[in-house]
Write a protein that binds this DNA or RNA. Structure first.
Length: 550
RNA sequence: GGUUUCCUAGCUCAAUGGUAGAGCAGUUGACUCUUAAUCAAUUGGUUCAGGGUUCGAGUCCCUGGGGAACCA
């Protein structure tokens, strides 16, 4: 890597730690003057130089220019770290100060100079670690470079032994340091962080540097995805990748994004669901498959909706929707126990006991969601009858249903189908109030054309919707594998929804798909739930925003 | 798409229609175990853009841009 070539310019400052470069060019570079020359460049400004002290960008650029003039370019330097911050701290043995040398690197986030000794903190992927710079350790010249050329936001590498300060913080006593990236722009304010929502999303990297909560939340999301993969792989599920560019947007009812392939001169849509290709894999004989992938829906943006979002879909041959119940319950409990790891504290003060818990606070309602308790299972129809107080609801005429919906204070459009009127009650009045994990089963068959019809009730399908925190977290079905019934369901829906039928998928079904259970989980919503976030934007690194003009 | 609301220093926020301020950060100085370090001094503004009302607009009105909440 050519980029490390100038690294050796600092090698003599960090003996034995930085292992870059061959011996030959170590020798060559050892004659580089490095920063030793720096202090001979007094930072004096003649009267003709304009005052830039208020312009932090200009001040930092000037510091960079001074470093380069002295023969050192931070953008051509690097550091061979030995540990991340928290791993380094864990090495320290009580009572054995200055015994364990480490090399750590990160962004300068705290700068406290007090005369001849200074405490600073750097931040890396694992968190922060304190560094102690002393003039009598580093020497006058290097200490001056540290004080005058470094700024908050710079990225540095340091080498030195661990010790514990008198206040008990494990700290690196810096024997040598090197600047490996100069921040030309200042960080947001240290105490209040960055709170302007727009900047948080447009410049997420700043949010992640200064807001620990965001840092932790988005790290948890990454761990959730990782744990989901391991959980499924442990159960012999295979991860596969299916097309994003599709000619028919199937598997859900949503408006797709349109695009065009030039060489083929063909229009494509971006997928709105993973379902139909994963089922082709069941036909192929991959009996347990899953995909974690991006879906795109050309619809509104809200606290719960981003135009691109991440779905997990799982298909298991020879299972059914009840098998999916067990799977999702095991999965979510695993995520709570091993990723989120909530704790509960009992008692006060000295006698307080903290123990692992299975409860997570629901941000919107303030209620505690208990993943450890038994999960409620209830039929869709029973919930509707309970809410309307009408045991005969499902045999009422459309006019009676419209009146019933309006009586509950909801808007009812005369153009809606019966099941849409009923589902309005479910969506507006029932779902938002299901805070504890609830399996809602036996939905009306019009709501999904891809599931098997219930054996003893031809108006419902063998499905569940797992609702937690008032949000639909995971729909699951006993997958429809009768090609003729599937075609009829598609055609009935195509009439209403103006959707295209995926004939290629139907052809695959005619070759025979094993009976299977399938399930989808919205990863973003799952992350909202498990991290206690309030908006989908809080769990997506770069949520969709309008382009700024100009 | 509709309603409401917000946009002021690098960041977080002030400012009855009447001279645009503070904290942090920056700059200069003091300080060799600090924890939002401290102390002293000091710089920094096209108040999102463009119009209008007014003797006078950050503030009121209109248009546009962007954000947020609620609704669809």
């Amino acid at each position: 890597m050519g980029a490390s070539r100038n690294f050796g310019a600092w090698r003599h400052l960090c003996v034995g730690v930085f292992a870059f470069g061959s011996r030959t060019w170590r020798r060559r570079l050892s004659v580089c003057p490095g920063l030793r020359r720096l202090t001979r460049w007094p930072v004096s400004m003649s009267d003709s130089v304009p005052d830039i002290s208020h312009d932090q960008h200009a001040v930092r650029r000037q510091k960079l220019a001074e470093l380069r003039a002295a023969g050192f370019d931070p953008f051509r330097a690097n550091v061979a770290t030995t540990h991340f911050s928290q791993d380094a701290k864990a090495l320290h043995v009580d009572g054995q100060d200055y015994a364990t040398p480490v090399t750590v690197a990160g962004r300068l986030v705290t700068f406290r100079v007090q005369g001849g000794s200074s405490f600073v903190k750097i931040q890396d992927q694992q968190g922060q670690i304190q560094l102690y710079f002393r003039k009598d350790v580093l020497g006058e010249e290097r200490y001056t470079v540290f004080k005058k050329q470094l700024d908050l936001g710079d990225i540095i590498g340091v080498t030195g032994p661990l010790f514990k300060t008198k206040t008990g913080e494990i700290t690196v006593r810096v024997d040598a340091f090197t600047l490996v990236s100069k921040a030309l722009r200042p960080l947001p304010e240290k105490w209040h962080g960055l709170s302007d929502a727009e900047q948080v999303y447009r410049q997420r990297y700043l949010d992640l540097i200064v807001n620990q909560e965001s840092r932790h939340r988005l790290m948890t999301r990454a761990r959730i995805v990782s744990a989901v993969r391991r959980f499924l792989e442990d159960r012999q599920f295979l991860e596969v990748e299916t097309p994003v560019l599709q000619s028919v947007a199937g598997g859900a009812a949503a408006r797709p994004f349109q695009t065009h392939h030039n060489a083929l001169n063909t229009d494509f849509v971006l997928r709105i669901s993973l379902e139909l290709y994963l089922k082709r894999m069941l036909v192929a004989g991959y009996d347990r498959v899953f995909e974690i992938g991006r879906n795109f829906r050309n619809e509104g943006i809200s606290r719960r909706h981003n135009p691109e979002f991440t779905m997990l879909e799982v298909y298991q041959a020879y299972s059914d929707y009840r098998g999916m119940m067990t799977l999702v319950q095991d999965l979510l409990r695993h995520l709570v126990r091993d990723v989120v790891k909530p704790t509960e504290t009992e008692g006060e003060g000295e006698s307080a006991i903290t123990r692992p818990s299975m409860r997570i606070k629901h941000a919107a309602s303030g209620e505690w969601i208990d993943f450890g308790a038994e999960w409620r299972e209830v039929k869709y129809k029973d919930l509707i009858i309970e809410k309307t107080g009408d045991p005969q609801w499902f045999s009422r005429s459309k006019e009676e249903k419209i009146a019933g919906v309006q009586k509950l204070g909801l808007f009812a459009d005369a153009k809606w189908e019966d099941f849409e009127l009923t589902n309005e009650i479910f969506g507006k009045l029932i779902e938002p109030n299901l805070i504890q994990p609830t399996f809602v089963t036996h939905l009306p068959k019009e709501l999904c054309p891809l599931a098997k019809i219930t054996a003893d009730d031809s108006s419902t399908i063998d499905v569940f919707e797992l609702i937690i925190g008032g949000m639909e977290i995971a729909p699951a079905y006993s997958e429809q594998n009768d090609p003729d019934v599937q075609r009829a369901m598609f055609e009935a829906q195509a009439g209403e929804e103006q959707q295209k039928v995926d004939h290629d998928f139907l052809l695959a079904l005619e070759h025979g798909m094993p009976p299977a259970g399938g399930m989808g989980i919205g990863i973003d919503r799952l992350a909202i739930l498990l991290t206690g976030a309030e908006s989908i934007r809080d769990v997506i690194l770069f949520p969709q925003l309008r382009n700024t003009a100009g």
